Amino acid sequence: MDYSTFLQLLNDEIARGDGSHKKQIIRFAHSRDYRKCMSHFMKLKSSLTMLSAVQPSRIIHAMICPAIPEGKLNKFKNDIFFEEDTRMKVHGTLHKTSVQWDHGIPWGVQQIRAPQTWATTTGHRIKIGVIDTGVDYRHPDLRHSLMRGINLLNRNMLPHDDNGHGTHIAGTIAAANQMKGIIGVAPRALIHPVKAFDHNGSAYVSDIILGIDWCVRNRMNIINMSFGMKSSSKSLLNAVMNAYNAGIVIVASSGNDAKRKSIDYPARYPQTISVGATNRQRRVAKFSNRGSFIDIYAPGDKIVSSWLRGNYNEMSGTSMATSHVSGAIALLLAQNPTLTPGEIKSLLRRSASTIRGRRLHSKAPGEVDALRLLREAKA
């Protein structure tokens, strides 16, 4: 492969672009070609100025760049694969704005019996990458839980939340304000916000991939993915597989379409822990996807958590359920740091409590139970 010619062509086609915001992912057939191309890329990017619009992704040996017309790089068709960069949405819906909250433990955190584990584990120093809309760094309930993250939409800015969804997720996982605010499932876990979603709760697949890349390089223990899309992406699957192989537990929401035989991606990938939502009655929430693709359920209906400008909000969705599961895994990993992602999925399923409306001998997945999870790991 002639890397210089390839990069020159890419530069020229980007310069000729139509000004649209469409993007594409260019994957290399062989990792050695990616590495050699990157070496040329570093040398040439000062002279080929349009290459500044290209973002390398080490985790999947790819380049993310503005979309160029099909066929323009035909001479390299044996060395590279193209994938259109699609969009996806967060999995949560807002119910009430500016909920009044006195202080204490939300019902979902109580229902999964997290407080009964805090005498032995609080998720101390477990690193959780929350790929979402960012987080409110000024929220008093999150002050002790937030660490360095990244803003993939604007690398020069902190991953500040301009939507609210990411702040809500972070609160359920690791809020720690006993006196005046809420307490999350794992109050001493560490949240690393990865802002990939805009103020509308929408993101490109490529930004998710770059977020996973960041989480792997910065050695997260858990990645929380409270979002999804209907179609599969080869590039996203590769990123998820590589993070899984690096020992990172990936927790993903199944979607809010009340489907019985299908769930959204990336939750559908076997390398993730797929999460459905339950309500206060320990039944599957009406909106939640369900069925054989679900690994575990957790509270996701009318969940109060932290919000923008120090406020609180009530939200529903498999997004909210996913944050409960990420918190429970943080409690587990703080006590059992050598567990693999596969072992954790198995422990979650074995220790789950039976959901109401299910036969006792049913093989269907149950609801996460943090106390039983820790006991199962000890056993």
Rank of each mutant, 00 (worst) to 15 (best):
K36F: 13
L142R: 03
Q8V: 13
T120Y: 11
N256Q: 06
K261M: 07
P341R: 05
D198H: 03
G291V: 08
R219L: 12
N177P: 06
D79K: 00
S4V: 14
R375C: 05
I173Y: 04
A246T: 03
V275N: 10
A321I: 06
N200H: 14
G129A: 15
S323L: 10
L360W: 11
H199C: 12
D85L: 00
S31N: 02
Y265L: 01
Q281M: 10
K259Q: 12
V251R: 07
T5H: 14
L236D: 04
G171L: 07
I250N: 11
P159C: 00
I183Y: 05
D301V: 00
C65P: 05
G228K: 01
R138N: 13
S98A: 14
D161C: 06
I182K: 04
A62I: 04
S233H: 05
I212M: 06
D213E: 14
S226D: 08
T272H: 08
Q116E: 15
R58K: 13
A176I: 00
R87K: 14
I128D: 10
R188S: 12
V54A: 13
E343N: 08
Q110H: 09
F227P: 02
S262C: 02
S353H: 02
A285F: 06
A243V: 03
T354I: 15
L152V: 03
Q271W: 09
K96G: 04
V325N: 03
V249G: 10
S253L: 06
V284K: 06
A321W: 12
T86Y: 03
F82H: 14
A114N: 05
H103P: 05
S274A: 15
I68W: 01
K345Y: 06
T93F: 14
W307Q: 00
S206K: 04
G108W: 03
I128Y: 09
N336R: 14
H144C: 07
K230E: 15
N78D: 15
L236N: 07
S323R: 00
S231P: 00
K302P: 01
L152S: 00
E367K: 00
K127D: 11
D295K: 02
A252C: 15
R268W: 13
A321G: 08
A196P: 10
G317F: 01
A67L: 04
T117A: 13
M42Y: 10
I191S: 12
Q335P: 02
R125Q: 15
I222S: 04
D102H: 11
T122C: 05
M315F: 02
D141L: 02
Q178M: 11
R32W: 14
F197Q: 09
A15G: 10
H91L: 15
V240F: 00
F82A: 02
A203E: 03
Q271H: 12
E376Y: 04
K363A: 07
R87C: 12
M220P: 10
W214L: 10
M50A: 09
I344P: 10
I223Y: 03
